[in-house]
Write a protein that binds this DNA or RNA. Structure first.
Length: 908
RNA sequence: GGGCAAUUAGCUCAGUUGGUUAGAGCGUUUCCUUGACAUGGAAAAGGUCACAGGUUCGAGUCCUGUAUUGCCCACCA
């Protein structure tokens, strides 16, 4: 952004400079630098325009661009460029996320290669290393976003660990704390033994796994009797402190008040009864491990059971595991199973399908683990966020995500926000050791929702306190933990705009307009931003949430580097160009559906860019560019019919594309553009107009259609459109700040469209016959056309030169009463009958077959149609215009049938 | 256990409020190196819209159920 390369060369170089093949490499960088230099991406709160704001889902600072980013950012850029051209003050706010665990893992990995660990380095040095890493590699993804063409206001680029954003984090923590919504406590949380940190419920990914259900025999003290319990994690038995059953379970009622004996360790276990125990599961008897299972934890609290923690943070067993101390949890499981089997305590092993939590960062199996953590009480924050969506102040597109959001919000649980890692926002809590020594924190300290949580010698503050307010001690210790990454991301829509300071940007650009993201982070990010936005800004952070699908490979697997199935967007850009990438990824993205990407799909985009390029090249070769004034439209009546036709089609395309973009139908818009440009403009208009191309009016139409089409395409394919637009007649200095095309209703001409439809059909019919009889394209044919009605007759006569030109006809006879020439093949279009003379070529038998086949088809349709028309209900109940339409069609078919029959008779 | 998607041409997928003969790209077949483009042009073949019911004059589209696949959520000891 600092060093500026030269501004691109002046437009309209000499024509022989223009290559036959579009080469994106030669232009993309130049135009991107041009846009940057001109400051087109910048947005100002001083503007008089209406604001349109998008905040980027900040990619991980260690990340590299993958196809998911490609899709996500292309969508945002399309919206941004579209709104910018429509005249909004458009801000696309960029930035990156510090991604606590992910980034720490990456840096730790590189340390390992040097034979170091973060512990051998120490906290301070380690964090320094991460910052260095970030300086070195953190810009990679930003550079890659440049290559994609992203029109973010880069000068505003933020990072979730910036000074300003860090201040926002502390401010929010303290405010929530003061409001009684933050507390600390010893609970069962999701623990990743590899990352050695707590995770939130959302960060635990549950996967269905076929494990085993082990039936174990627990003896009852002082009897020969035993109880059989079922467990999937037998190693946790070492932490059992009770067994339980449902109070109405007759099988176990007599055990009330007795004591069971834990096998292997011979610990005495209480026997409890609880309503929540399902008598139908397993044997109906439950082993209770309060420190290693969330359900057991609750039972233990309720019944006052002991908590025995048997695990170290790395999931090896600790001294409470007796002889199993030091073993990894899975080794211990094997050993214990073997031991239990030997002692005939293991009665049965069954296969059992259950879902097991995995760390979303490293895929390690999670342990439910009892440890002291910080939590945010969410219910009060969720309430207004539910209302905002229910009231429609924020809208999900597609709508179905509304329900997913509301369900989660309604059943929201408290958020575990502390992480036992080093890279992240340190929790703004300090402790005074002397005060805590004097009055230690009671072990089971309870949090009462809505009241401020306190502990002796604990200070919660925005900035580091210098002394303890109670005893004046200066040696305060900050809480070791850092905050969940999402604790900074949930503030993104306003922290990036300067909050908590007063900032005109906040007033102007907040709330944002559209959030574009994938459904996998609705809970992590979207829902939490809703809550934070409403809580701290008093207003929901976005009006619309556009949820797109996930990019998968052609086999349906989620794309990932490790699977080696990834199509690298940068490779596609290198080979086919950014426009091809953008075209490809958008064209296969139906609203909210997952996307299956493969390299071939981007070829379509490359081909389209090339087609645009060559059409423009052709126009430029024939255009007297200097004499064209786009603003000076010729009178409509002075235009040729094809000119009026393409203008009409162009205006309807403007209408369509604008509508598609307004309704977030991106792939549909692209489809319309592709069809209009390739099939209408290139295949028909350019071909039809070639003989007339020097006319002044046609020149204006060519330039105008190109100008407008390029503008419509620009949000999707910014580079090729700018490159061409600069070469053709244009107004203004860049297409990206040119006004979005407006529909000119006067140029919409349904009559000329209908007329052209007939002519194009006629041309195609003749071509069809030519092709069927394998007539060499170079050879001209004689054609006779019978049009029995004035309407068709007139049109055909008016446009006969087009037919001659486009179907390679040497002699064309048109009339009401034309008789069929000898040795001719027939083609029907509407009520018009066309005879193509095939002297010496025609095979009567084959032609008969052709006609008979056509006849059969017509009869089939007639039967279906007659059935409908004879149905009184249909005639009575269907709308008049539908009935009328069907009647007319029946007439047409009847007519056609008779003509085909006559054709058969007159056949040679 | 609950929920959400998907099922349409050989392949990958479109198909707003139900309404002529269901579309595209790729692939296939035939022809064409014609002064914009072979990353191209012309023409063509190819579909009982997963299945079974129902609503309706009329269903790919709405309703119910079934099957298959994928995803999400859930204290599935």
């Amino acid at each position: 952004m600092s060093a500026q390369p030269p501004v691109p060369p002046a437009p309209a170089p000499s024509q022989d400079e223009i290559s036959k093949v579009y080469n994106p490499k030669l232009v993309e960088k130049t135009w991107y630098q041009f846009w940057l230099k001109k400051g087109y991406f910048k947005a100002s709160s001083k503007s008089r325009k209406k604001p349109y704001t998008i905040v980027i889902p900040p990619p991980n600072v260690t990340g590299i661009l993958h196809m998911g980013h490609g899709l996500n950012n292309t969508l945002q850029d399309i919206l941004t460029r579209f709104k910018r051209m429509q005249g909004y003050e458009t801000l696309w706010m960029p930035g990156t996320d510090h991604a606590g665990i992910a980034t720490q893992n990456v840096v730790e990995k590189s340390l390992r290669e040097e034979g170091l660990t973060r512990h051998s380095l120490g906290r301070e040095k380690f964090v320094e290393r991460v910052w260095k890493w970030r300086e070195k590699y953190g810009n990679t993804i930003i550079r890659q976003l440049h290559r994609l063409g992203s029109s973010c206001d880069w000068d505003r680029t933020r990072f979730t660990m910036d000074e300003g954003l860090s201040r926002a984090v502390r401010e929010v923590f303290v405010r929530l704390y003061e409001k009684g919504l933050i507390y600390r406590g010893k609970y069962i949380i999701n623990w990743c033994p590899r990352c050695q940190t707590a995770l939130s419920d959302e960060e635990a990914q549950h996967k269905e796994i076929t494990g085993h259900l082990y039936h174990l025999k627990y003896m009852i003290e002082g009897t020969d009797e035993h109880v059989t319990i079922a467990t999937t994690r037998p190693e946790t038995m070492l932490g059992d402190t009770a067994i339980g059953f449902h109070p109405s379970d007759d099988r176990y009622k007599h055990l009330a008040g007795k004591t069971a004996i834990l096998p292997l360790l011979n610990r005495r276990l209480r026997i409890i009864q609880d309503e929540t125990i399902d008598p139908k599961f397993g044997t109906g008897a439950l082993k209770i491990t309060p420190a290693h299972d969330p359900v057991d934890f609750q039972l233990a609290q309720k019944h006052g059971l002991d908590f025995v923690n048997i695990m170290n943070p790395d999931a090896t067993l600790n001294e409470n595991a007796g002889p199993y101390k030091g073993l990894d949890r899975f080794e211990a499981r094997k050993k214990i199973i073997a031991e239990l089997e030997d002692r005939r305590i293991l009665l049965e092993t069954k296969e059992h399908l259950h879902s097991v939590g995995h760390c979303y960062r490293c895929q390690t199996v999670i342990e439910p683990y009892l440890s002291p953590q910080w939590f945010v009480h969410m219910k009060p924050l969720a309430k207004p966020a539910i209302a905002a969506v229910k009231d429609g102040r924020t809208e999900f597109v597609p709508k179905r995500w509304t329900k997913v959001y509301l369900d989660w919000m309604t059943n929201i649980k408290d958020w575990c926000v502390s992480r036992q890692i080093w890279w992240g926002h340190r929790i703004p809590v300090w402790y005074c050791p002397p005060c805590r020594a004097k009055s230690p924190v009671p072990d089971g300290k309870k949090y009462v929702p809505g009241t401020r949580y306190t502990e002796p010698g604990m200070i919660v503050a925005r900035e580091a306190p210098t002394r303890c307010p109670d005893c004046g001690n200066k040696d305060l210790i900050q809480d070791e933990d850092v905050l969940d990454t999402w604790f900074s991301s949930w503030l993104w829509p306003f922290s990036t705009l300067g909050w908590p300071d007063k900032n005109p940007d906040l007033k102007f650009f907040y709330p944002t307009s559209t959030l574009v993201t994938g459904y996998e982070i609705i809970f992590f990010w979207v829902a939490r931003m809703m809550m934070a936005g409403i809580e701290f800004m008093g207003k929901e952070p976005f009006k619309q949430v556009y949820i797109h699908g996930i990019v998968r490979d052609e086999t349906g697997a989620k794309m990932s580097k490790s699977l080696g199935n990834a199509v690298d967007p940068i490779d596609i850009i290198d080979e086919y160009g950014a426009d091809a990438l953008r075209y490809g990824i958008i064209s296969i993205t139906a609203e909210g559906q997952d996307v299956y990407a493969s390299k071939e799909k981007f070829e379509v985009g490359r081909n389209f860019a090339n087609k645009i390029w060559n059409a423009a090249r052709f126009v430029l070769m024939n255009l007297d560019t200097k004499s064209i004034n786009l603003k000076k439209a010729p009178r409509l009546s002075s235009l040729s019919p094809v000119d009026r036709w393409i203008l009409s089609r162009m205006n309807r395309t403007i209408e369509d594309i604008t509508g598609c973009l307004d309704r977030s139908r991106f792939n549909e818009a692209l489809q319309v553009l592709y069809d209009f440009f390739w099939h209408q403009f290139c295949d028909w208009y350019l071909e039809l107009t070639k003989p007339n191309i020097q006319s002044k009016e046609t020149q204006w139409v060519l330039a105008t259609v190109l100008d407008n089409t390029l503008k419509l395409m620009h949000p999707f394919m910014p580079f090729v459109t700018e490159e061409i637009w600069q070469k053709v007649p244009h107004e203004g200095e860049s297409i990206m700040v040119a006004p979005w095309p407006k529909v000119n209703k006067r140029q919409i001409d349904r009559k000329v469209e209908a007329e052209l439809e007939l002519i194009l059909g006629e041309i195609q019919a003749i071509r069809n016959v030519r092709s069927a009889w394998q007539i060499n394209p170079k050879e001209s044919v004689t054609v006779a056309v019978k049009a029995s009605r004035d309407r068709e007759l007139k049109v055909l006569q008016k446009y006969s030169t087009y037919v001659v030109q486009m179907a390679k006809v040497s002699s064309l006879q048109i009339g009401k009463h034309v008789t069929r020439p000898k040795e001719s093949a027939v083609a029907n279009i509407g009520r018009v009958e066309t005879y193509v003379v095939l002297s010496g070529l025609i095979d009567v038998a084959v032609e008969r077959q052709r006609i008979e086949a056509a006849l059969e088809e017509v009869e089939k349709m007639m039967r279906a149609l007659e059935g409908r028309l004879k149905n009184e209900e249909f005639v009575k109940k269907a709308p008049k215009e539908i009935v009328e339409k069907e009647r007319r069609r029946a007439e047409e078919l009847d007519n056609r049938k008779r003509r085909l029959e006559e054709n058969l008779r007159t056949l040679a």
